[in-house]
Nucleic acid binder design. Structure first.
Lengths: 207, 207
DNA sequence: CAATACCAAGCAAGCGCTTGGTTTGTAAAC
DNA sequence: GTTTACAAACCAAGCGCTTGCTTGGTATTG
């Protein structure tokens, strides 16, 4: 199943909004603005202007501004969990599975859904505590994928550090790429960056 | 020179404010509040209340709210650059120097100045572009320390990935610890965490 | 003809910051 | 050792503006 098929099936199941529909377009623009200016600095008037409606009209689609932020996060996690699962199932060895996860997470952060992923990382505290708890639950599924693979590598002594710690370090390291990685400028491709991460962990690229 | 001596000499040179003075106390409370609630969600009334004065009185010490944020960041960088330099000079081999840097950065993030360091990482975008440029310049000194050590290890083939990329990954990974590392609860000490980071990079702890 | 999507207008609250005047600390002048 | 001078630190009040959100009404669509 390719990435586009995954998106389509999630739309069909009503788990993510169609980016062509009104709601989906708003969420996409919201993700862009939240990343660009931050959630607090983005006003409902900014959001409305971005999709060409009046600010009051937003509240027919969402009850509050925070609900928009939450929707961006929830749909992003749903999509990316599905993408990760697919990427990992396609790989065979633990090392390849790890590479697939790293590659998929880098793609999530720096690719199409990158804006929404950045929002997920940097606007976390703007969510109310209740919403945080809800979103956190979705993230656990996603984290289990990583711990499984890292645990296997650890058992094989190919990873020297604790899987929990490594996963958390990788979360930070990979998220942070959003602040500096610019594929269009430098020579480093996404695959190249993935190789660098693997090399850093002591898995040199197959020659 | 121990950490406290370093702080004292920086105060003497007027590079950081005395935490016992009015200005220093405000900056400390500001760091705490900015980290806890975020810069945008912290009002000047919150800041004033935290040090027991009226909101208007803040503006005798700082011209704008943003100037407070900038001061927190500038003083934090100054202090931590000095701490890093000291930590590194005390080490001998490149591996020990790297460990000293990792340990010092973890200490910066999770220790006394942790609140201010977290502000530096997460409230970056709340600074105006001009202020960002100023602060960035200070950071470059600090980054040069890292690249020097990582470059040496790379030349010795003890590091497989590109120093620039590794440094950026470490920036993300180490900063991120602020979101999950709780030394008071878990069994992992700062030294233990440092060992884990080194192990992840392929430098097993000396047995 | 109902439901959905939207507009135009604006409210109440909260924001950063200003203003004019008072207190406090310090040190020279008598 | 009291008085005078003056700046720094602070208060009380509030201005002008922006914010998230509401309201009552009007197109648009199946």
């Amino acid at each position: 199943m390719n990435p586009n098929q995954i998106l389509q099936s999630l739309i069909a199941e009503n788990l993510v909004s169609d980016p062509n529909g009104a709601r989906g377009r708003l969420l996409k623009e919201a993700a862009r603005l939240f990343r660009e200016k931050g959630y607090e600095r983005t006003t409902v008037r900014d959001l409305a202007a971005a999709v060409g409606i009046q600010s009051g009209s937003l509240f027919h689609h969402f009850r509050t501004k925070e609900e928009i932020l939450k929707a961006v996060m929830v749909e992003t996690i749903r999509l990316n969990t599905a993408l990760m699962q697919a990427a990992m199932e396609a790989a065979e060895t633990p090392k390849d599975k790890l590479r697939a996860l790293v590659r998929a997470e880098l793609e999530s952060i720096n690719g199409q859904t990158g804006e929404a992923m950045a929002v997920l990382v940097f606007e976390w505290r703007s969510l109310s505590e209740d919403s945080q708890a809800e979103v956190l639950e979705l993230r656990d599924i996603y984290e289990a994928l990583w711990l499984d693979v890292l645990g296997t590598l650890r058992d094989q002594k190919r990873l020297l550090a604790d899987p929990f710690v490594v996963r958390r370090m990788l979360t930070g390291a990979l998220s942070w790429t959003v602040t500096w990685y610019r594929p269009e400028r430098g020579g480093l491709t996404l695959d190249g960056l993935t190789d660098q991460v693997m090399a850093m962990l002591g898995f040199p690229p197959a020659s």
